[in-house]
Structures are given as structure tokens and as C-alpha cells.
Design a protein around this nucleic acid. Structure first.
Lengths: 113, 113
DNA sequence: CCGTATCCACTTTGATACTG
DNA sequence: CAGTATCAAAGTGGATACGG
């Protein structure tokens, strides 16, 4: 579970980008945050169905450390925490939208063959 | 090294996309192929410095199986093999360009803090 | 030049149970 | 509601040596 928070010795910026959005879940989390602006922990888990609590919490922590999600905690009972994109990750949200479209195009194209 | 070639039970297309470009190398390979149109095995290895032969061969095979790279073999000695994007992956190349720009923006922004 | 084969360490992910 | 803790399984990546 060691997550190397960014040093700047990347060769190519593509590598840097993949480093922070790579893995099985991060791009999905960011994508859903982009579409919904603000989401609570539970909402994210419902949106991503197959993720479990441990992974969701885990990935959110890493994204937060990399300054790609903002975490707002309301000091109430029961707990309320809201997640959203940051200024850094907002442009990335747009790209993920394109990636989503390509993913659709791609799977459709595969189906036809 | 088990690579599940695509079935179509993805929830969200973002997931599908990440499935095929995920991992440490694939996005980089596709990015370089996008920039150079056609590249030989050696050229790719030089472009990506830190990758080793096994991984490069491996990832290229998977990308080929997923129809994201085209592999053209010239029956000559010494061997000559050219790799290029396919119709399916060309639009992806454009997206990787955007991802590259964001990666640059992101690392610069981090440096300033 | 363009790969394969083997072998192994590390990392990531998942199931389950528990908590303030 | 929003998490942690623990344990185990699976996946991924790397070094090295060899081959047509």
C-alpha cells in the first residue's frame, strides 16, 4: 500500500499523469466527482458498486494527498464528509470525459467485429 | 501476467478505457506511437528508457490483442518490425496528448507550492 | 534485431470484521 | 455515516539468460 507521493523525476508528463490517475479506481472516482461536483462517501460507493469501503477510503486518501480531491468534513453526528475535485483536477475531469467517450466508441467497435 | 482480453461487462466506459491503457507502460507506448506514427521495437525502447525488453514485448502483445497497435513484420534478416496505432487507438492518441499537457500543468503546479 | 523463458519480489486488491 | 484493522490472494514488474 505504499503510495509514492510525487517526486518530480518523471520522464514524460504522461507518466506523471498515469501515476496519479492509474490503478483500478482513481480515474473512476475522479470521473464521478467531475459529473456530480460534490459527493459523499456513500454516494461514491453506490456509484462505483464494485468498490469496497477499504479501497474507496484508501484511494480517496491518496487522491487527497496528491491534491486531486478536496475533502470537507462536517463536525456533525452522524458524520458527513463531502468530496470534490480541486482546481488541479478540474481540467483532468474534462479529459476523463473524453476518455469515457472513447471507451464507449472502443467497446462498441469491438462488439461489431 | 494474465491479461483479460476484453469482455464487455464493464460498468462505466471509463473503466473500459483504463483497462486497456492502464498499467505502468501502455499509455506511454501509445503516446510515443502517436507522436511518431511508426516505430520499431528498438526505437520504442530508447524512447521509454526505463522499460526492459520483456515488458515492452509483453505490453505490445497485449495492446495488439486489444487492437490498439498494429504490428507489421518484414520477413528480412535481421528482423524488422514496425509498430503503429490502429484506427481504434488513433482518437485515443489525441486524448493522451491532452493528458500529457495536464501532466505538465500538474507537475508545474506542484513545484510552485 | 527482436524477441522468449524462468524465476522471484513487490504491490495492489479483496473479504471480512469492527468502531466512533 | 464514514471509516480502520487484519489477513490473504492475485496481479504486476524486474533481472537475467538465452534463441532464431
Amino acid at each position: 500500500m505504499k503510495h509514492r507521493t510525487l517526486s518530480c523525476d518523471y520522464g514524460c508528463p504522461v507518466e506523471a499523469a498515469m501515476q496519479v490517475i492509474g490503478g483500478k479506481w482513481k480515474s473512476l472516482i475522479l470521473y464521478h466527482l467531475h459529473c456530480n461536483s460534490i459527493m459523499r462517501f456513500n454516494a461514491l460507493q453506490k456509484a462505483i458498486q464494485s468498490i469496497n469501503q477499504r479501497m474507496l477510503a484508501n484511494q480517496l486518501r491518496e487522491l487527497e494527498a496528491d491534491k486531486l480531491v478536496h475533502r470537507k468534513v462536517y463536525p456533525v453526528v452522524p458524520p458527513k464528509v463531502e468530496y470534490s475535485l480541486t482546481e488541479l483536477s478540474k481540467p483532468l475531469g474534462e479529459i476523463l470525459l473524453n476518455l469515457r467517450d472513447w471507451g464507449e466508441y472502443y467497446t462498441n467497435a469491438l462488439d461489431k467485429t
